[in-house]
Amino acid sequence: MAIKFDIKNADLFYGDFQALKNINLEIRDKEITAFIGPSGCGKSTLLKSLNRMNDLIEGCKITGSFKLDGVDIYKDIEITELRKRVGMVFQKPNLFPMSIYDNIAYGPRTHGIKKKAQLDEIVETSLRQASIWDECKDRLKKSALGTSGGQQQRLCIARALAVKPEIILMDEPTSALDPISTIKIEELCQQIKNDYTIVIVTHNMQQATRISDKTAFFLHGEIVEFDTTEKIFSAPSEQRTLDYITGRFG
């Protein structure tokens, strides 16, 4: 598989605090890559630097190279274009206080799609892809905030899919959800992985083993080990990885 993201010698500082230290990582196309590690290890930080959400944080400084299909995302690409190609699903469902339809159509409208027929089609396809069409096709015009937490998170995924991204970043997407909703989201990830590259941050190691192809283990801002998920969880080469996955700390 082709390399989608190529990260080289990346350092990230929040003011004086170094949150990422010399990160080198290749994320491959149409794979699910999981970031695991204890809280504050930098996994979310790295995820957010892939679509430049860290730009919103003051005092955040990034060095090194982040290449998407060989193009530096911090130098040679428009930020709105980058975020169109690299979608994001957040830890807590953050649907806008508007109708389900308007939520899904927000992204396409942002990128200039105005025709109703075209929007209708995008909304339906996105909702179908996120396997939530049947549950909400009769209330598209009702407020999106009236749905359950699990549905909201799947709607957030549908909203991200609606701009037709190549990559979807998920920042602990199931940490606020019940087990059944969690399973639905995981199944969803499996379904869409043939068309999208997914990077998922998770606290839940079972989740990483269930859905991901590759796993990166983070500790204190460094990647300790990066390999196939199978290898990481069966025969890690680093003692620290073994300690973490066997629950000795974290």
């Binding site: 679509n51 919103l56 979608g87 806008f96 992204g107 991200a160």
Partner: peptide, 10 residues
């Protein structure tokens, strides 16, 4: 909400 909007490229 702001993050969600920026995240979609707005």
């Amino acid at each position: 909400f702001r993050e969600g909007s920026y995240g979609l490229g707005a």
